[in-house]
Design a protein around this nucleic acid. Structure first.
Length: 258
DNA sequence: ATGTCCATGGCACATGGA
């Protein structure tokens, strides 16, 4: 079972690129972020034609998350994080596919920091951590997949010193990620590549792709009962190098059948 | 600070968010 996360940065603007990647990569489940499309503008018919059932939570202009399943329909278990009915951002979807509970998340960016956007990011993560703990307590096999907008360690940044004060890398958010790990989750890509510099995002600015000035922002975290099923994983870097690409590359894992 | 994308409103290109 191949599970991918991909910040598409505009699902309609990059629909052709998404369909091309789906055809060549054949993921079983895809978590998409930054749809930048309202609920009624999600390209469900085109994805259905490509063989993918979908659920999505759109939003005008910004944010937006979706989950696709190959030759199946995700069985939705939750939309939106619990804990704040006033939070209207579309950043969280959760569904079961083929016996695995999968969360699709798009964490707030948080810049500029300090400031209200950074406070929102930290508050959002407090709710996320509380919910992640509840998911672990169910004993279900769970994958938390998405754009975390956090580089967990220096190994996840092309130039750590330049990012120390950024909302994606400040001590407060790295501590949040460490607390998540302490709950018992496994960072799948880091487990597969413990020493390697691996990136999932390259800024559009300053020729970041050409210089390989990347960041690792997109993560798939596994509940303890899934770690033994982790067969492999990677980042489809070549997708980032194409014309009209998203600034993120698809990131994926392969789980064995039970 | 800079840089480059997306979507929006409205029909040219400025703006916000990332």
């Amino acid at each position: 079972m191949k599970i991918a996360t991909f910040n598409i940065n505009g699902v309609n603007g990059r629909l052709e690129a998404l369909l091309e990647w789906l055809e060549e990569a054949e993921p079983d489940v895809v978590c998409l972020q930054e749809l930048k499309a309202p609920q009624n503008k999600f390209p469900a018919a085109a994805l259905e034609k490509a063989g993918y059932g979908a659920i999505w939570q759109g939003q005008k202009s910004w944010n937006g998350v979706a989950m696709l399943a190959r030759n199946a329909d995700p069985v939705e278990t939750r939309r939106g994080l619990p804990g704040d009915p006033d939070d209207l951002h579309s950043r969280y979807l959760e569904a079961a596919v083929n016996g695995v509970l999968i969360a699709c998340l798009y964490a707030p960016n948080g810049n500029p920091a300090p400031g209200p956007k950074f406070e929102y990011k930290l508050a959002w993560y407090e709710r996320f951590l509380a919910h992640a703990e509840d998911l672990l307590a169910t004993g279900a096999p769970v994958v938390l997949a998405g754009d975390y907008n956090i580089m967990p360690t220096d190994l996840d940044v092309y130039s750590p010193e330049r990012w120390r004060d950024d909302a994606l890398f400040r001590p407060e958010v790295r501590k949040v990620f460490a607390r998540l790990m302490a709950q018992g989750w496994t960072d799948a890509l880091r487990k597969l590549h413990p020493e390697e510099r691996i990136y999932t995002f390259w800024d559009y600015f300053r020729n970041a792709w050409g210089r390989n000035a990347g960041l690792r922002l997109d993560h798939l975290l596994l509940s303890p009962n899934l770690v033994g099923r982790l067969q492999g994983g990677g980042i489809d870097r070549d997708v980032r190098g194409r014309d009209h690409a998203s600034d993120h590359a698809p990131t994926w894992i392969e789980l064995s059948d039970t």
